[in-house]
């Protein structure tokens, strides 16, 4: 958990400012400064702890409710009288739950793979090739990235549903990812900009074509950015609600977890215990993936805002 990029990785930075006083400082001043530091330490850590508890408590309450009995979940008591672990198996027995998992995994995995494969060459070209109109291309990529999905949903829906009859499936959401995803292109390009030109030139001198340069030199160096993009896209697909609501909601066999969870709540409206168990189960994979890929993730977020 501690292997992330932050203060810990750059020990010199933050502590330097407090490294002892100026030569003329007296011993008393030094002691005062130490005491102030100690107080500051306590203040910072107790505020941090309070906020951390507030951030984690919702998960605790959700969990406690998820193991309550049906009738207790409708009261406002906090602690389960009986621990009803069978709520979790009950959720899995709900008609369709397995299908939602399968669909969500299919959507997320296919979507991620297609996005990475289609976005890397585009990002590479935008970062390293010189060609007329590349500034315009970059502006368009940013515009696409910022475009609210609702802006183009009507023609897109009519296109997929009425022309291609692909409504009731997840294909209208997966297929576009084979044609580059603006956010991924943007993020990869920002990273690729930082690769020194000399590496690429060296590869080219060795007689590599652009494709081989990309595969042999760029890809290995861009691993962190690619994993960040893959993670973002995976989470995007996993969390997507609007897309499945528009395209696949009329066919229960194509529901995803996000859409299914909402309808699950509808069908078991105030069976809060089952709803909370399902909710936690939907959250679980995301959290597990996060723990394995924390570093790539946080680097990716940083890249979106800070670099460039």
């Amino acid at each position: 958990m501690s292997n992330t990029v932050t203060a810990g990785d750059r020990p010199g930075r933050t502590s330097r400012s407090g490294r002892g006083g100026v030569p003329s400082a007296s011993g008393i001043a030094l002691r005062q400064a130490r005491r102030r530091k100690k107080l500051e330490w306590i203040a910072v850590h107790s505020v941090g702890l309070a906020i951390a508890v507030a951030f984690l408590l919702p998960f605790v309450f959700l969990f406690l409710t998820s193991v309550m009995s049906d009738s207790q979940a409708l009261t406002s008591t906090l602690w389960p009288q009986h621990w009803v672990w069978s709520n979790y198996t009950a959720v899995f027995r709900v008609h369709g739950f397995g299908t939602w998992w399968r669909n969500t995994i299919e959507y997320a995995v296919l979507g991620t793979v297609l996005t990475v494969v289609s976005s890397v060459p585009v990002a590479y070209a935008l970062a390293k090739f010189r060609f007329p109109g590349r500034r315009l291309a970059m502006m368009l990529v940013i515009s696409m990235m910022m475009l609210p999905p609702q802006v183009i949903i009507i023609p897109m829906y009519l296109f997929w549903a009425k022309q291609l009859h692909l409504d009731g499936t997840l294909w209208p959401l997966i297929i576009p990812m084979a044609f580059g995803d603006a956010f991924s292109i943007f993020l990869l390009r920002q990273f690729l900009l930082t690769i020194p030109k000399e590496y690429l030139d060296a590869a080219r001198v060795d007689g590599c074509g652009e494709v081989r340069t990309l595969l042999r030199v760029v890809l290995p160096m861009a691993r962190p950015a690619i994993s960040a993009v893959a993670l973002f896209q995976f989470f995007y697909c996993w969390n997507d609600y609007f897309g499945p609501q528009i395209y696949s909601s009329d066919n229960p066999a194509a529901w995803t977890l996000s859409y299914g969870l909402q309808s699950f709540h509808g069908a078991h409206q105030t069976n809060w215990n089952l709803t909370m168990a399902a909710t936690l189960l939907v959250m679980a994979p995301v959290i597990v993936v996060f723990f394995f890929a924390q570093k790539a993730f946080i680097e990716g977020v940083t890249l979106t805002g800070v670099k460039g």
Binding site: A161, H165, D167, G168, S249, D250, N251, P252
Partner: peptide, 21 residues
């Protein structure tokens, strides 16, 4: 049989047509 279907979904699916309708 497909259960628990709302009017919105009927409207939408019938507009689209296709195999799932």
């Amino acid at each position: 049989a497909v259960s628990n279907v709302t009017d919105d979904k009927i409207n939408q699916a019938l507009r689209a047509g296709g195999d799932n309708a």
